[in-house]
């Protein structure tokens, strides 16, 4: 049975189709890299899988049925992460708030859940964050905390929306490795959105490329080609392969890097 299946599905926001008539199927245990320019619909797709945005046409199934809001078997790391600048709550309580946070009544943290949180923090190398206030953490530290949170509760499907943002190169590798490993060990299906393909090349099974309202799922060699990407970007795209790297160029400019710079207006200077 496929974990996620779209059959001629259309996803609309405010009357505008973000993805139109797309069909693809993702199998259990696959590690899928989700790529595409800003506004291509990566976040929208994940929200639809979570049941927050029903398709306006066609069919979308998750684990064989229509997506249900609050499905405990889906781990989610949202892209839009609101952190109040003055939030003096420690990492442990932050993660604990998400464990059955939808239930009524007073919050509580059992010893078993506490151990689970600590073990997962260990796995992503973030044990020391449990007792530090969120407002004192760097963006990358918060990112690792959220990643740990997404892994808690034995999810069968992980939706990670740009988990590499604001991580340095070393931690990006750590994150990719950790996810690759849990994905293999527990046969978890992973959707991992990113703006740069090259770091993911060794880890992902297939790539889901979004753009221009369309989606193409397949092996990197079949999808990341000049004709397919030209269609998705709606402009002439060149694909160069050199030394195990892939460069996607539009009129001689690297589109991934351009996207990336666009994402962090403030740290243009940093090199990869």
């Amino acid at each position: 049975m496929n974990v996620i299946e779209l059959d001629r599905a259309t996803l609309q926001i405010g009357g505008r189709a973000v993805l139109k008539d797309v069909s693809f199927a993702i199998e259990p245990g696959e590690f899928i890299g989700v790529l595409g320019p800003n506004g291509a619909g990566k976040t929208t797709l994940m929200r639809a899988i979570l049941g927050l945005l029903p398709p306006s046409a066609g069919r979308l199934t998750v684990f064989g049925h229509a997506p249900r809001c609050g499905d405990a078997s889906i781990g989610y790391l949202p892209q839009l992460r609101t952190v109040l600048p003055d939030l003096r709550v420690r990492g442990l309580d932050y993660i604990a708030s998400s464990m059955h946070g939808e239930r009524w009544g007073l919050p509580s943290l059992s010893a078993a859940n506490r151990a689970k949180i600590e073990a997962t923090l260990d796995a992503v190398g973030a044990r020391d964050l449990a007792n530090r206030a969120l407002s004192d953490m760097s963006g990358g530290e918060r990112q690792r905390l959220l990643l740990a949170q997404a892994l808690i509760g034995e999810p069968k499907l992980l939706l990670l929306d740009e988990p590499l943002i604001s991580l340095d190169a070393r931690h990006q590798e750590v994150v990719i490795d950790v996810i690759r490993q849990v994905c293999r060990e527990r046969r978890i299906t992973v959707l991992f959105s990113a703006h740069e393909l090259n770091q993911l090349l060794g880890a992902i099974d297939r790539v889901l490329y979004l753009g221009n309202g369309q989606a193409v799922l397949g092996r990197v060699d079949d999808v990341v080609t000049a004709p397919v990407l030209s269609r998705l970007y709606g402009t002439e795209i060149e694909v160069l392969r050199a030394g195990g790297h892939i460069f996607v160029l539009s009129r001689g400019r690297d589109v991934e890097r351009a996207d990336h710079m666009h994402d962090h207006g403030h740290d243009h200077g940093h090199a990869h």
Binding site: P78, L80, Y94, S98, G101
Partner: peptide, 13 residues
């Protein structure tokens, strides 16, 4: 607490 600390995730849950 969940909605205050992590609104996006709370909504998804």
């Amino acid at each position: 607490i969940f909605a205050s600390l992590q609104p996006e995730l709370a909504e998804a849950k």
